[in-house]
Amino acid sequence: MNAAGGRRPRQTRATEKKRLILEAAIMLMLDKGLASVTHRQVAHGAGVPVGSIGYYFNSRGELLLRAVEEIGARRQQKAAELIDAAAPASTAVLARDLVEIYSFGDSTRLLGWLGATVDCVRESEDLRLMLCQHRTQKVRDFRTYLEAAGRPEASAELLVMLIDGALVRSAVEGAIGSAAVDTAVEALVRELDG
Rank of each mutant, 00 (worst) to 15 (best):
A92F: 07
P88M: 09
L65S: 06
R143T: 10
L65N: 04
Q41I: 05
S59D: 05
L110E: 00
K78I: 06
A80T: 11
R66K: 11
S36F: 07
D106M: 13
G174P: 05
I21T: 05
Q133N: 08
R13I: 00
K32V: 02
C132R: 09
G47D: 11
G194R: 02
E173K: 04
G45P: 06
I163L: 13
C132D: 14
V48P: 06
C132H: 06
M130Y: 14
R8S: 14
Y56W: 05
Y55V: 08
R74W: 05
T108S: 07
N58M: 04
L114E: 12
L65Q: 03
A85D: 06
L188T: 11
L127T: 09
D193L: 00
R96S: 08
S170F: 03
D182E: 15
L64C: 08
R140C: 10
L159P: 09
L111C: 05
V168Q: 14
S124P: 02
L114C: 11
A116V: 00
A85L: 00
L64V: 01
R19H: 08
G112I: 01
S178C: 12
V189G: 02
A86Q: 10
Q11P: 00
A156M: 00
G6I: 11
V93D: 14
A43M: 13
R60E: 02
A87C: 03
R122L: 15
K32W: 13
R66D: 05
E191Q: 09
G194Y: 01
V189W: 05
A89C: 04
A171T: 02
R75E: 03
K17Q: 15
M29P: 01
L34S: 02
E70Q: 10
L30V: 08
G194Q: 00
Q133P: 04
A35Q: 08
Q41M: 13
A86P: 03
L30A: 10
R60P: 09
S103D: 03
G51K: 04
E125A: 12
S124Y: 01
S170Y: 03
G6H: 14
V99E: 01
R75V: 04
T12W: 13
A4N: 11
A35R: 04
K17L: 12
R75D: 01
V121D: 00
G174L: 06
A171L: 15
R128E: 07
T136G: 03
T108Y: 07
G51T: 09
R122N: 03
R109M: 00
S36K: 08
L34A: 01
I101P: 07
H44P: 06
A92M: 03
S52T: 11
R8I: 02
I21P: 02
I71Q: 09
A95I: 06
R60L: 02
R10S: 03
